[in-house]
Design a protein around this nucleic acid. Sequence first.
DNA 1: ACAAGTTTTCAATATCTTTTGAAAGTATAG
DNA 2: CTATACTTTCAAAAGATATTGAAAACTTGT
Lengths: 167, 167
Amino acid sequence: MELEQAKNQFINLWGNFGSQWGINRSMAQVHAILLTSPTPLSTEDIMEKLQISRGNTNMNVRELINWNLVYKETVLGERREFFRAEKDMWEVAKRIVRERKRREIEPLMQHLNDLKTVESDNLAEKQDFENTIQSIDRLVNKLDSISNNLMKADEHAFFGMIVNLFK
Amino acid sequence: MELEQAKNQFINLWGNFGSQWGINRSMAQVHAILLTSPTPLSTEDIMEKLQISRGNTNMNVRELINWNLVYKETVLGERREFFRAEKDMWEVAKRIVRERKRREIEPLMQHLNDLKTVESDNLAEKQDFENTIQSIDRLVNKLDSISNNLMKADEHAFFGMIVNLFK
DNA sequence: ACAAGTTTTCAATATCTTTTGAAAGTATAG
DNA sequence: CTATACTTTCAAAAGATATTGAAAACTTGT
């Protein structure tokens, strides 16, 4: 396949994949274009290649910077900003995990805690509900603790350990 | 907190959580109501408690059955169908992983493969693109292989191994 | 075979999310 | 200080997604 065509396919692929996981299509596509650009890109470059508006580009680049997946870059003698994606995919994965944990898992854990014990005259039903919540809570906490450790480990160590485990 | 109130909060919580991860709100809410019901529920029950239409209820219950998270149940002397959720959350987690893998990760891996080698006169840029794709491909494959093993292991074994690893 | 109860489908509608683009805001050079 | 280059904001519009509800299809008992 030809390089330009392959890049376009990748932008598409990454966009679809993102939207299946609750990340908006444009944001994923901006990420894709930066991942596959050998040089940092300006807002104009991104607008042009993805055919999206200035506002849209600005907002999604900014969000990617919040996620720590994209850096601002200054180019000598250029007034406008350029953007460059983190290309170490292990880093990318860790940062996505970190961010989703912070934004979604932690609030979830907080709320589950509030539901752990309830009041009711119907003892059996009370117990049943509490069991379900406990069971969700245990799972979420375990996944959380794996993700904490994952973020400390380096790629080789992490996958090495996991793969060895199952041999 | 009072039981009924807690159930409502949970339905809400699960619905929000689902929609952040690309699962539609109603589907997650139907799942929540079944998870927290001590007895199987009919379509009518679900419609009434969630205040949603028959069509919506039917479609989402069916989707949950496709995901293997909900079972059809027959009640003696009743003509209509009842539904019951799988309550072992380790099982639930495994089934969600299995399904998302099948629907999303496998197609992704397929497409990445097609992008692994491209043609271009610009050797440096070709190399750069191929490196990025390779790096994504390696990560996805490793995550895939962990998830395969996870689905074979039982909960205790899995978490036991992971937790010990990081001690 | 019919009638009553139940489930499924799907076009129309409503809702929610994303995108646009022009205006306001900010920074920099001269 | 002022003009110009550039970035950010946000209300309105477009687009995507979810929901409704009534009709069609199916199922079961008599």
